[in-house]
Amino acid sequence: MDVDTGIDDALALVYLLSRPEVTIQAITCTAGNVGARQVALNNLALLELCGRQGIEVAVGAEVPLQIPLVTTEETHGPQGIGHAELPLPQQAISPRHAVDVWVEEVRARPGEITGLITGPLTNFALALRREPELPRLLKGLVIMGGCFNYQGNTTPTAEWNVSVDPHAAKEVFAAYRGLPEEQLPLVCALETTERIEMRPAHLRALAEAAGAEDPELVLPDQPEGLRSGSSNPLVACLSDAIRFYMEFHRLYDQGYVAHMHDAFAAAAAAGRTSVTARLATVDVETDSPLLIGTTVADYRGLWGLPPNARIVTGNDPDQCFEELISSVGALAAGLRTGPARC
């Protein structure tokens, strides 16, 4: 996992921890939603909350390749986890750099590792500079990023992860040009990830799946910043984080919902949610001040270049939420009860 945790990254991580058939080999951290070191602390604290210490968490790029870093605490909160307050983790950040983790782990296990990138593509672009064979050495790659014939969530044409480091995204897509279809990255872009709208009823269902004693009520008429009273520590943490995300979406007239972009990408990477995809040749605009970060897909071969991506064109939000709630709920049910604070 390469992440910029982040509320929806947090749910993606917890979901993958809940899947018994999934082994998280390592977590690499890049600056995006918050700074890279805060991302690492968030991941380590979430691992400890879920009883999964021992997974390597490494810091990578702390700035984009060519442009200044912009973070988005207004979207994800001062720590990146909304209203939740994560304690400082006991496990230390890895001494390895994220690029070393990417290259060394994939070289050691050719054809075995699926990469999941839910933040800016900076770390992976730097890893490709070090080892250009990574696309052939990986079992697969899933990217949450971009938007195609769809409004951006950062500029009118650009999605957040790509807009943070468009030059990295451009390098990554170029590295996959001409590879066999089965090796091309699966791209989960806004037109399908924004269909994964988490609502108050989903949080209530999550608490029920976890066996929590009281209903988990995150409702639009409640005061902003209200903290969960759940005795289940994971339910309380996710509830406090996601409430912040719902408040943010409401502020921008999108309703009292939370778009779980990264959780969908994680379920797709695990092969646990249905998707349809379409081959395309993708490029990223890096020069125009008006359009920087725009992802462009050529579906018809007009550029005369081979495909370099499989763009998700269809998904099933109801099935995806059934998967997320049942799996994360089962993980939460196995955690001891404690103070209603993350």
Rank of each mutant, 00 (worst) to 15 (best):
D165K: 08
Y176I: 12
E133W: 01
G146L: 14
P180E: 02
A168E: 09
G145N: 08
A175H: 10
L134G: 01
A174S: 13
T154M: 14
T154N: 13
F148A: 01
M144G: 12
Y150L: 07
A158D: 03
V172D: 02
T155I: 05
L138E: 01
R136H: 04
G140E: 03
A174P: 10
Y176H: 12
E171M: 14
G140K: 07
I143W: 00
V142W: 10
V162H: 04
R136S: 06
V164L: 11
P185Y: 06
G146H: 05
A169D: 05
E182Y: 05
Y176F: 15
H167K: 04
E159T: 08
A168Q: 06
L138D: 00
H167F: 14
A169G: 08
V162I: 15
P180S: 02
P156I: 10
I143R: 05
E182H: 14
P166H: 01
F148V: 13
L186K: 07
N153C: 13
P185W: 05
E133A: 15
N153I: 12
G140H: 04
S163G: 11
N153M: 11
T154C: 14
W160C: 11
N161I: 05
N149S: 08
G145H: 03
Q151Y: 11
L137H: 01
L137W: 05
K139T: 03
A158E: 03
C147K: 04
K170E: 15
G152L: 07
Q151K: 13
E171W: 14
V142F: 11
E159F: 03
G140W: 02
N161L: 08
G146Y: 05
L134Y: 00
R136F: 06
R136V: 04
L138Y: 01
E171F: 12
P135S: 01
P135M: 02
A158Q: 03
Q151H: 15
L179R: 13
L141K: 04
G178V: 10
Q183W: 14
V162F: 12
Y150D: 09
A174R: 15
T154L: 15
H167E: 15
G145S: 10
G145P: 14
Y176G: 12
L138M: 07
Q151V: 13
Y150F: 15
T154A: 13
H167T: 10
G146Q: 06
V142Q: 04
Y150N: 09
N161F: 04
P156T: 09
C147Y: 04
D165R: 09
N153R: 12
Y150V: 01
D165Y: 08
F148K: 00
P180T: 07
D165I: 07
Y150S: 02
P156E: 13
L179P: 04
L137N: 01
